[in-house]
Amino acid sequence: MNRKLLASYKFGLIGGVFCVAAFVVFKLLGMDPTKLSMLFGYFLIPFFLFIGIKFYRNQGNHGLLSFSDGMSVGFLIYSIIGLVSGLGIWIVLMLSPSLYAEIKMQKIEILNKNKDLIVEQVGLKSFETTSESLLNMTTLDIATNDFIWKIIPGLFFTIIISIILRRNFK
């Protein structure tokens, strides 16, 4: 198995499981699990990227790390976190239709509550399109959104962490 994958998969799996657990815990605490799990991911992803890339540098690559190695390992970590988190949230929502319905209803209520502001800023047509999209939203849409919002910050943090941890000589 590839050294980078061997050094990365455990950090990605653990990070993804933490994201799914946070989703469930936030729901149990009566909070919006979609927003808070995304926010939680912004703290969790850089932590697992840092320790995963550092682990690869120190244990898997004899103390050396090029920028491209850091980017590769980071990509694997945040991709696995995103996949595990997205799949886990999708499974939770499939097993709990009432949670899915509650999340969907909350999003529709927020949209309707802010209708005047939204119409003023982007127009009635955009508001109606967004409203229709929310009415047609599926569990897979929520899981895909979570996946995307793990990948985007993951790329950003990977660039920074790869530069910080880069070491081309011993």
Rank of each mutant, 00 (worst) to 15 (best):
L65P: 04
V24L: 09
F23G: 01
I148F: 12
Y42K: 11
L83Y: 05
W149A: 03
I108W: 08
V20A: 06
L13D: 04
M38Q: 11
G63Q: 01
F127E: 01
M38H: 09
I77L: 05
D32G: 04
K113L: 00
I160A: 15
V17W: 00
C19S: 15
F40H: 10
K170V: 15
T139Q: 15
I81T: 01
F11R: 06
M1I: 09
K107N: 13
T130S: 02
S85N: 07
N145F: 09
I80M: 10
F50E: 03
V25W: 04
L99K: 01
Y42L: 15
T138C: 08
L134C: 05
T130H: 00
I152C: 07
V17F: 06
G15K: 01
T129A: 13
T138Q: 12
Q121T: 13
I80S: 07
F40T: 14
F55V: 00
S96M: 06
E109A: 13
D146R: 07
S79M: 05
K4H: 10
M105S: 13
S131H: 00
E132D: 12
F47S: 13
I91G: 02
L93Q: 00
I163T: 08
V122H: 01
Y56N: 05
N112Y: 05
I159L: 14
N114A: 14
Y42P: 00
F48Q: 09
T144M: 07
L134F: 12
I51H: 09
N58R: 12
I53N: 08
F157G: 03
A22K: 02
M137I: 14
T129R: 11
I148N: 13
E128Y: 06
V122L: 07
T158A: 15
V119A: 08
